[in-house]
Design a protein around this nucleic acid. Structure first.
Length: 515
RNA sequence: GACCUGGUAGCUCAGUGGUAGAGCAUCUGACUUUUAAUCAGAGGGUCGCGGGUUCGAUCCCCGCCCGGGUCACCA
C-alpha cells in the first residue's frame, strides 16, 4: 500500500476505525490550557530535576509532525505552527481507549494532550501523556519531514502546506505581521488617524499605472480597482484630518516579477503643514524603528549585501545621480544642462543607447536615465530627491525651480521602497497638470493620469501645505526577512490557472464523502 | 513579449533510445526514554500534456500547459 490513493484510503480507514471506537471524528472544541510555544518558552530552559520537583501539568494541542513508535513506548512531535514539542505515549500511562487512538494516528493529524512536563534521558522537553484526544484528521500525506517542501510552485499555490512543514516560511509571515503592527503603532503614536478609502474607484488615480477594470451590476457602472489611495486621502486632509494613514492593497494591471505582484500592500500617509524634508527624516526613523522592533537590529542581509538601516540615509538628487552615472559611462563630463533640454537629453540618451519615447520631454528622459543607470546600484538606503515636474503630476514644485518638484523616492537593496512629495495644492496648477496628462494619454500613454474633477474641486476648497508618502510594505518585508522575491512575503501570490483536471485537485476527490 | 531553465513515486532527488531508481513517507513484523530512531520484509509510477521520428521514446524533434530566472515594462 503506497500510492497516493492507497495512502488516502488507509488514512480514511483509520478515521473510520476511530468512529467505530466511539471517538468523535470532528469534535467541536478542545479546551487547551497552553500552546506548544507557551510551554517551550516557559519550560524550555528548566532542568529535568526542576520539572520533576513541581511536575507542571498542561493541556495542549497541535499537529503531529513526527511519530516514533517502540511498541509500548512511543513519541509524537506536535507543533502549534511555530514551535514543536515532544509527547511521550506510554501504553500503561494512558486509558486503553486513548492508546487505541494513538495507534490510529497519522502524520498531520491534530491531537490534544493532557499530561505533565518532564525531560527524557536525552534531555528532551516532553509531555508525559495521561490523556490523548483526537481533534481532526489529515487525509493527505504530508511532504517529507527532513527536506520539507521546496517546490516553489506548490509553496505558493498551497501555502498551507508550506506553513505546515517549513517553519522559516511561517517566520517570514510572523515578521510581516509584526512590521504592520509596528508601523501602525509608529503612526498612531504620532497622531495619525487610520482610515479606509475606496478600493473600487470610478477614476483610477493617484499613480501612473494601468488599472484592473470591474463592473457594478445594480448601478451598471464601470469601476477600477484602485492603483493608489492618494487622491482620497488628500480629500480627507481637505476635510480636516490633518494626519491620516491607510495600510491596504493597491492593484496594478502590469507585469509580474520578483519585485511586482498585481496586488501589493502600501502604507500611505499625509501630514498637513509638513514638506518632503520632514518626511525624509520621519522615514529614516520609521524604517530603523521597525527594523529594531521586528529583528532587534537595524542591519539586514539582503541578496548578499549587508545593509544598514540606521539613520541618516544618503541623499542624492535625481538629475545629479543621472548626470554622474552618464559621465562615468561615457568617460566625459556631462553638463547638467544636458538634462534640462529635451533635445540635448534625447541626444544623451541616444549616445548611452537608452531608448526613450518620442513624446518624452527632458524630465522624463532624465528620469529614464536615472532608472536605467542608477536604480539597481542603490543598495544602501538612499533618498533620491528632486524629481522632474513632468513625471510628477501631483507634486509641488520647488519655489526656485518650477521644472523640479519636492519629491523623493527611497531606494534600498536596489529597488524603490517609498515615494513621497510635498503635495501640489494649487487647484489651477493641478488642473493644468491633469491636462498635460490627458495629452499624454491621447498620445497613447495608457498609464497617464485621468482628469479628476472632484479632486480639483476638493483642492479649490483649500488643501493646507501637506506632504504625503507611500511605503511599499511587501518590499520592506522582503528587506527585513532577506527574501529575494516578493512572492515569498505574500501569502497567496497570484498564479496562473492550472488546467481544469489539475485544478480539480486530488485532495477534493479524496475528501469528498460521496466518492 | 523575448531568451535561459525546470516538470520522474505523497515529498526530496538520481537516471537511461531497450519492461524505471534511491532516501524519507506508506504497509507487515520486532522493540518500554527515542529524536532524520533502528532492524527485517513488502508494495507504490500516464517519467507535465499532445503529436512526430524510431522495431522501440521518460530520453531525440515539434507544439502546448505550469513553474523559476534574466531582460523588456512597471512600484
Amino acid at each position: 500500500m503506497a500510492s497516493l490513493e492507497e495512502q488516502i484510503t488507509q488514512r480514511r480507514a483509520h478515521l473510520d476505525a476511530l468512529v467505530q471506537l466511539g471517538v468523535p471524528a470532528y469534535p467541536n472544541r478542545f479546551d487547551r490550557r497552553h500552546t506548544v510555544s507557551e510551554l517551550v518558552q516557559a519550560h524550555g530552559s528548566r532542568t529535568g530535576e526542576e520539572l520533576d520537583a513541581d511536575r507542571p501539568e498542561t493541556v495542549t494541542s497541535g499537529r503531529i509532525l513526527g511519530i516514533r513508535s517502540f511498541g509500548k513506548a512511543n513519541f509524537l512531535v506536535i507543533s502549534d505552527g511555530l514551535l514543536r514539542l515532544q509527547v511521550y505515549i506510554r501504553q500503561d500511562s494512558l486509558p486503553a481507549l486513548d492508546f487505541k487512538i494513538f495507534q490510529l494516528l497519522d502524520f498531520g493529524d491534530w491531537v490534544g494532550v493532557e499530561g505533565r512536563l518532564f525531560r527524557t534521558k536525552t534531555n528532551e522537553l516532553t509531555v508525559w501523556a495521561a490523556r490523548l484526544h483526537f481533534l481532526a484528521k489529515c487525509h493527505l500525506p504530508l511532504p517529507e519531514k527532513w527536506h520539507g517542501l521546496t517546490d516553489v510552485e506548490i509553496r505558493y499555490r498551497q501555502r498551507y502546506l508550506d506553513l505546515i512543514v517549513n517553519p522559516e516560511s511561517r517566520q517570514v509571515f510572523e515578521v510581516r505581521s509584526k512590521v504592520v503592527t509596528a508601523i501602525r503603532e509608529f503612526m498612531t503614536t504620532r497622531g495619525y488617524v487610520e482610515v479606509e478609502t475606496p478600493m473600487m474607484q470610478p477614476i483610477a488615480g493617484g499613480a501612473l499605472a494601468r488599472p484592473f477594470v470591474t463592473h457594478h451590476n445594480a448601478l451598471d457602472m464601470e469601476l477600477f480597482l484602485r492603483i493608489a489611495p492618494e487622491l482620497y486621502l488628500k480629500r480627507l486632509v481637505v476635510g480636516g484630518f490633518d494626519r491620516v494613514f491607510e495600510i491596504n492593497r493597491n492593484f496594478r494591471n502590469e507585469g509580474i516579477s520578483t519585485q511586482h505582484n498585481p496586488e501589493f500592500t502600501m502604507m500611505e500617509f499625509y501630514q498637513a503643514y509638513a514638506d518632503y524634508h520632514q518626511l525624509m527624516q520621519m522615514t529614516e526613523e520609521l524604517v530603523a524603528t521597525v527594523a529594531q522592533r521586528v529583528n532587534g537590529s537595524d542591519r539586514v542581509l539582503f541578496n548578499g549585501h549587508q545593509i544598514s538601516l540606521a539613520a541618516p540615509f544618503a541623499r542624492l538628487s535625481l538629475r545629479e545621480a543621472a548626470r554622474d552615472a552618464a559621465s562615468t559611462r561615457l568617460g566625459r563630463d556631462v553638463p547638467m544642462a544636458s538634462l534640462r533640454s529635451r533635445d540635448l537629453a534625447a541626444a544623451l540618451a541616444r549616445e548611452l543607447g537608452i531608448e526613450v519615447d518620442a513624446g518624452a520631454g527632458a524630465g522624463r528622459i532624465a528620469t529614464e536615465l536615472f532608472e536605467r543607470l542608477c536604480e539597481d546600484r542603490l543598495i544602501q538606503p538612499t533618498f533620491v530627491h528632486d524629481f522632474p515636474t513632468e513625471v510628477s503630476p501631483l507634486s509641488k514644485q520647488r519655489p526656485d525651480d518650477p521644472e523640479t518638484v519636492e519629491r523623493f523616492e527611497l531606494y534600498i537593496g536596489g529597488f524603490e521602497v517609498a515615494n513621497a512629495f510635498s503635495e501640489l495644492n494649487d487647484p489651477r496648477e493641478q488642473r493644468r497638470r491633469f491636462e498635460d496628462q490627458l495629452k499624454e494619454r491621447a498620445g497613447g500613454d495608457a498609464e497617464a493620469h485621468q482628469m479628476d474633477e472632484d479632486y480639483v474641486r476638493a483642492l479649490e476648497y483649500g488643501l493646507p501645505p501637506t506632504a504625503g508618502e507611500g511605503i511599499g510594505i511587501d518590499r520592506l518585508v522582503m528587506l527585513l526577512t532577506g527574501s529575494p522575491s516578493i512572492r515569498d512575503v505574500i501569502l497567496f501570490p497570484l498564479m496562473r490557472h492550472l488546467s481544469s483536471r489539475d485544478a480539480t485537485d486530488v485532495a477534493a476527490d479524496a475528501t469528498d464523502p460521496s466518492v
